[in-house]
Simulated scan of single mutants.
Amino acid sequence: MNVLEHLDSLVLFVIGIAAAPVAAYAFIHALRQRSDAFTAVGKLTKNAWLGITGASAFFMLLIPLFGALTSVSYAGFWGVVAAFQGPGSSMTLFWLAGVVAVSVYIVDVKPAIVGVQGGGQRW
């Protein structure tokens, strides 16, 4: 197979491989924070962000695995790559929404929460 024919799939695969651990990190970070810190910075509640980041991590980890395991045509490396997006997955929209939600948490919510708690806790 020519790699250039599947460049878009490979790019989304790399994003998926990078985004899944980031989603797990975002969930763990939200879990470790005080609940009043979320409302102090004018963001959604802690439980809301736990639900958002938890669902995002779930979809980012489960969708490719489910797609690769449920279809015989997904055997091998290219099957796992194809499971991340496009015609290989009917859940691509959920995966993409998870990437966006985790990105919002990491870029917007996490710095605000760390700042309101004194900035000492970087993890």
Rank of each mutant, 00 (worst) to 15 (best):
G16Q: 10
G16M: 12
G16E: 11
I17L: 12
I17N: 10
I17P: 00
A18Q: 10
A18N: 07
A18C: 12
A19Y: 13
A19K: 13
A20K: 13
P21H: 12
V22D: 06
A23N: 12
A23K: 14
A24F: 09
A24T: 05
A24R: 06
A24N: 08
Y25D: 04
Y25H: 12
A26F: 05
A26K: 03
A26Y: 02
A26W: 06
A26D: 03
F27W: 14
F27E: 06
F27C: 06
I28C: 03
I28L: 05
I28W: 04
H29K: 08
H29D: 13
A30M: 07
A30Y: 05
A30P: 02
L31T: 05
L31E: 10
L31I: 01
R32N: 02
Q33Y: 00
Q33T: 02
Q33P: 03
R34P: 15
R34F: 03
S35G: 04
S35M: 01
S35D: 11
D36E: 14
D36G: 09
A37L: 08
A37M: 03
T39N: 01
T39C: 01
V41P: 00
V41D: 03
G42S: 05
G42W: 14
G42I: 06
G42D: 04
G42C: 04
K43R: 09
K43G: 01
L44Q: 13
L44K: 15
L44N: 14
